[in-house]
Design a protein around this nucleic acid. Structure first.
Length: 367
DNA sequence: CAAACGTGGAA
DNA sequence: TTTCCAAGTTT
C-alpha cells in the first residue's frame, strides 16, 4: 500500500516551525519568542554573518553593538573607527558599505529602516539574501531569504541537479512557495537553523529532521551529494614583503590602504607589491625609508579567498625624530589595538615584534 | 557572468 | 596537511 513515491509531498512550513519552536538557537541578535525584533540589530548581524560563521561573529557583534548601539551612532562615527571595530572579521567592504548604509538610513529614512525587500535591496551592502532576511526577520514581510543553508536544504529536498550558482533562481522560487503567511520571519530563521544544525554539509542528521519525509535526496540516500557546485580555480601563490619599523620612541610606521580593493581602508605596515615572481632577496629595494634593514628568518603565510600569500618581513630600528614618509604615520606600539589592522597585518607585526599589547578591557557597565 | 573579496575552524 | 567552507555583495 505505502509507496515510496508518496515522499514527494511538499514540505510543510508548520512541521519546520514546530521543530524551530523546540530547537531554535539562542543567538545574541535574535529576539526572544514573543519579542519584537530590532531592525538595526537584525541588519547588523546579517551583514556580519555574510560568509562568516556564527562563532566568529558573536564577539564582534557584541563589541560592535556596544560601541554603536543605534543606527544614528553608527552613521555619525568616523569611518576609521568603524573599520577598527571590524578589523579581524574579514571582507572589509562590508564595513564600508555598512557605514554608508547607516548614513543613508539616517539621512533618507530618518533612521528608520525600510521594511520591504524591494527598498532594502537598494541600500549599500544589502543584496538579494540580506534584503529578504531583514524584511522577513525584522518586519515579518513575506520574503524568502535564500542563503547557503537554504540552498543546501532545498537542493536536497528537491534533488536539484543544476549546480550552484545557476540553481539559485530555481531555489528562490521553490522557497517562496513554502513561506507561510503566518510567521515568515520565524520560517526564515528556522530554515537557516535547520541547515546549520541538522541539514549540515557533511553527515546531516536526517533522523532528526522535521523534513525527512519530503526529502527526495534522503529517500535515495544521496543527501551528501547535494548541493552540486561548480569548483572555483585556486589562486596562485603570491610573495611579497612587509616593512616593520620601530622608532626609538616605541612607535611603529603604518599607513592606510586605498579605500577599494583588497583590505580596502585598512591599516598596515608598508608592504611591497605581492606577486608570484617577487624576489624576497631584493625586498630592501622596496623599503619605505633608509635604515639598517634586517631580514627576519621565516615567512608569514596567509590564505586569502582567492590566493595564498607568503610575506617576508624586514625589520629596522630608527632614531627618535625620524619623520614618516608621505602618507604614513607613527603609531605608539601600545596603541596598535586602536588601528584597523587586518589579520594578515597583525601576523606581520607579531612576526617582527612578538605579541602585540592587548586592548584594555572594556569598562564594565555594572561592576 | 566570473572574479574579487578574509578569516579561522573543522574533518 | 589538505580541503572545504560560513546567514553574500559588488563589479
Amino acid at each position: 500500500m505505502l509507496t515510496p513515491a508518496l515522499s514527494a509531498t511538499k514540505p510543510r512550513a508548520d512541521d519546520l516551525l514546530a521543530w524551530y519552536d523546540r530547537h531554535r538557537r539562542d543567538l545574541p541578535w535574535r529576539a526572544k519568542p514573543g519579542e519584537a525584533a530590532d531592525p538595526y540589530r537584525v541588519w547588523l548581524s546579517e551583514i556580519m554573518l555574510q560568509q562568516t560563521t556564527v562563532v566568529a561573529v558573536r564577539p564582534f557583534y557584541l563589541k560592535f553593538l556596544d560601541r554603536f548601539p543605534t543606527v544614528h551612532v553608527l552613521a555619525q562615527a568616523q569611518e576609521e573607527v568603524v573599520m577598527q571595530a571590524w578589523a579581524g572579521l574579514g571582507y572589509y567592504s562590508r564595513a564600508r558599505n555598512l557605514h554608508a548604509c547607516a548614513k543613508v538610513v539616517v539621512a533618507r529614512y530618518s533612521g528608520v529602516f525600510p521594511s520591504t525587500e524591494e527598498e532594502l535591496l537598494k541600500l549599500p551592502g544589502i543584496g538579494a539574501y540580506t534584503a529578504a532576511a531583514v524584511a522577513a526577520i525584522a518586519f515579518n514581510e513575506h520574503a524568502a531569504a535564500v542563503d547557503g543553508n537554504v540552498e543546501r536544504v532545498m537542493s536536497r529536498i528537491f534533488t536539484i541537479d543544476e549546480p550552484l550558482p545557476k540553481a539559485k533562481v530555481q531555489i528562490k522560487t521553490l522557497t517562496e512557495e513554502l513561506v507561510p503567511t503566518d510567521r515568515p520571519g520565524d520560517f526564515a530563521q528556522a530554515l537557516m537553523d535547520l541547515g546549520a544544525t541538522i541539514c549540515s554539509p557533511k553527515r546531516p542528521a536526517c533522523a532528526l529532521c522535521p523534513w525527512m519525509s519530503p526529502c527526495q535526496a534522503r529517500e535515495q540516500g544521496l543527501q551528501e551529494t547535494f548541493p552540486k557546485k561548480q569548483k572555483k580555480a585556486e589562486g596562485q601563490l603570491r610573495r611579497g614583503a612587509a616593512f616593520v619599523v620601530l622608532r626609538a620612541d616605541d612607535t611603529i610606521l603604518l599607513r592606510t590602504r586605498p579605500p577599494k580593493g583588497l583590505l580596502g581602508s585598512m591599516a598596515e605596515p608598508p608592504t611591497s607589491d605581492w606577486d608570484p615572481a617577487y624576489e624576497p632577496s631584493r625586498a630592501v629595494l622596496d623599503a619605505p625609508l633608509e635604515a639598517r634593514w634586517q631580514r627576519l628568518p621565516g615567512v608569514v603565510r596567509h590564505v586569502f579567498t582567492h590566493f595564498p600569500l607568503e610575506m617576508t618581513i624586514l625589520f629596522a630600528k630608527v632614531p627618535k625624530g625620524t619623520p614618516a614618509p608621505d602618507d604614513m604615520r607613527w603609531t605608539p606600539r601600545l596603541r596598535l589595538y586602536e588601528e584597523a589592522l587586518p589579520g594578515v597585518m597583525k601576523k606581520a607585526l607579531v612576526h617582527a615584534l612578538g605579541d602585540l599589547p592587548p586592548e584594555p578591557a572594556a569598562k564594565a557597565e555594572n561592576a
